[in-house]
Design a protein around this nucleic acid. Structure first.
Length: 492
RNA sequence: GGUCUCGUGGCCGAGUGGCUAGGCAGUGGUCUGCAAAACCAUCUACAUCGGUUCGAAUCCGAUCGAGACCUCCA
């Protein structure tokens, strides 16, 4: 088996992956802020890391995958005047902040479940780790990289940069940052605009608040990830992932917080998933340019012509590399749906394939190697899918009698195809064909097929076509082949 | 304005100094009573202009265009 290479945002290169402890992988991914429904762009990021998690497990690693839930609320706008987003939403809907958090946490889990995500090993919540966050702040203050003003604590970026490197992840120079930071009108407690809050004193209206040595308040929004990743994965762990838009300042600040509190660079490999765009623009709740997962299941959206299954959407997303921008469109999704159906149909007919003495038409062992090669090259799922379609072609050729497969090779295909499609890509088979369908429906359709064939023999094509077309309308497609007629049932 | 990324055929999307990506759509054929499905064959390509090189879509420079970040965002 070849080595796994992962693109590391820190170095800007693909690096051979070597876990800190052999056989074990610690991976942290920034989860959602649960103040509204996750949109498809959010889903894409988490799906990328779901695939990473699946593949690492497949390779035999024991993975501790930590993905947090941000339920403490971030600030709405500029650090000193903002209202907590969760509190703001609660105010609008006249419900408790934790009620908002609960509602959207449940929605988040249901959505990911729909898309066949594996649950992370640990899903810690920010509000459950206030003590750890306070302890981290104490460490940073003790080491001289933070200061307290009016009950709030800020990270001293300039001071930090004197001995460490602030900006090494996002490749920013602190001089440029100083130069380009807007001057805030409001009265700020910060020494410098680049400084960020570790602890904020709560204003009167702020409902979410906890006691601390500095004030009744709440933690700064970069802090929870540092506190929780350190708690569950240690001061130095293997992989940290998140959306590209979190690279700066969020991840940059995480590095600074870790280095300021315990002196170590927290993460070996930083991975960033790219944006999903709609109309060429990043999906974002704030601009209204987004599509919700639920829209696919109802089909009720100006962006969609019909319903789509979650597997089709998953397939669509994985057809692009996680580090590329992917533009969403109905046309692209329709194309993916056809491709997905073709792939599943090939899997469905696998059990009915005829075995031969030898394999002609494909080098199965080489194919398996190529599939791993694709995934080992920075989780290149589009290439893996391209390889899968080469196999699909081979399977169809066997069915048509223009290619042949040995019993051993067919076993290999069976094993590996299913591993790649279901275990690694995490797709589900939403299609139904007669080979996987049993029971009364199958018998009924077979009866209709027999009646149609009778009509055809009697040259009653009006009746035979009526049966065929009516079935197609219902979503059952008849496939006339050399060995007789089979059928496929469309999902939904 | 600053930093960074990207511009691939009708559409979506890989690749990256010489070797078919793949999917969808199109075209021709096989099969069929006709279709559909499936199979076979096949057409469209690397934003523009320069440079490096035996050779560039791939490296370098410029231009144009798009996006991300710089402020909460996956």
């Amino acid at each position: 088996m070849k080595d796994l290479f992962i693109y590391n945002s820190l170095s800007g290169k693909k690096e051979k992956f070597k876990p800190i402890k052999e056989g074990l992988v610690g991976m942290y991914v920034c989860g959602p802020t649960v103040y509204s429904n996750v949109h498809l762009g959010n889903v894409r990021t988490f799906m990328s890391f779901d695939m990473v998690f699946r593949y690492l497990k497949h390779l035999g690693y024991k993975v501790r995958y930590v993905r947090n839930i941000t339920d403490a609320g971030h600030l709405e706008d500029d650090a000193d005047s903002g209202e907590d987003r969760i509190a703001k939403k609660a105010h609008l809907e006249k419900i408790e902040p934790m009620e908002v958090v609960q509602r959207y946490t449940v929605d988040f889990h249901q959505t990911l479940n729909n898309f066949n995500f594996l649950p992370p090993s640990i899903e810690p919540r920010a509000t459950g780790h206030i003590i750890e966050q306070i302890e981290t702040i104490k460490e940073i203050i003790k080491n001289g990289f933070a200061y307290e003003v009016n009950g709030s604590v800020y990270f001293d970026v300039i001071k930090f940069n004197e001995t460490k490197n602030y900006g090494k992840l996002s490749k920013r120079k602190i001089e440029d940052l100083i130069h380009n930071t807007r001057n805030l009108d409001g009265q700020s407690d910060k020494k410098n605009p680049q400084d960020f809050a570790l602890w904020k004193k709560a204003e009167q209206h702020h409902i979410m608040r906890w006691p601390s040595p500095w004030s009744n308040g709440f933690p700064g929004w970069h802090l929870e990830c540092t506190a929780m990743s350190t708690k569950y994965l240690g001061e130095n762990f293997d992989i940290h992932g998140g959306g590209m838009d979190l690279k700066f300042p969020h991840h940059e600040c995480e590095i600074a917080q870790s280095e300021a509190s315990h002196g170590k660079s927290p993460v070996n490999v930083w991975m960033h998933a790219n944006m999903l765009t709609l109309n060429g623009q990043k999906m974002a709740k704030s601009t209204g340019n987004f599509i919700l997962p639920n829209d696919f299941f109802t089909g009720n959206s100006k962006h969609l012509s019909k319903k789509f299954s979650s597997s089709v959407v998953r397939f669509f997303i994985l057809q692009a590399h996680y580090r590329s921008v992917l533009d969403f469109s109905n046309t692209a999704l329709l194309a993916s749906e056809k491709g997905y159906n073709k792939l599943m149909e090939a899997i469905n007919i696998l059990p009915s394939l005829k075995k031969s003495d030898e394999t002609i038409g494909m080098n199965v062992k080489l194919w398996i190697k190529d599939c791993y090669k694709a995934m080992n090259d920075d989780f290149n799922s589009p290439i893996l899918i391209a390889e899968l379609f080469k196999l699909v072609k081979f399977i169809n050729q066997i069915k048509d009698g223009s290619a042949f497969v040995s019993s051993d090779d067919l076993n290999l295909i069976n094993l590996h195809l299913k591993e790649f499609v279901f275990d690694i890509l995490g797709l589900k088979n939403d299609t139904f064909s007669d080979t996987k369908f049993e029971g009364k429906l199958k018998e009924t359709v077979q009866l209709l097929i027999a009646m149609r064939n009778e009509a055809r023999e009697n040259k009653d094509f009006k009746l035979s076509d009526k049966i065929r077309d009516r079935l197609l309308n219902i979503g059952i497609q008849l496939n006339d082949g050399k060995e007789g007629t089979t059928f496929t049932i469309e999902n939904k």
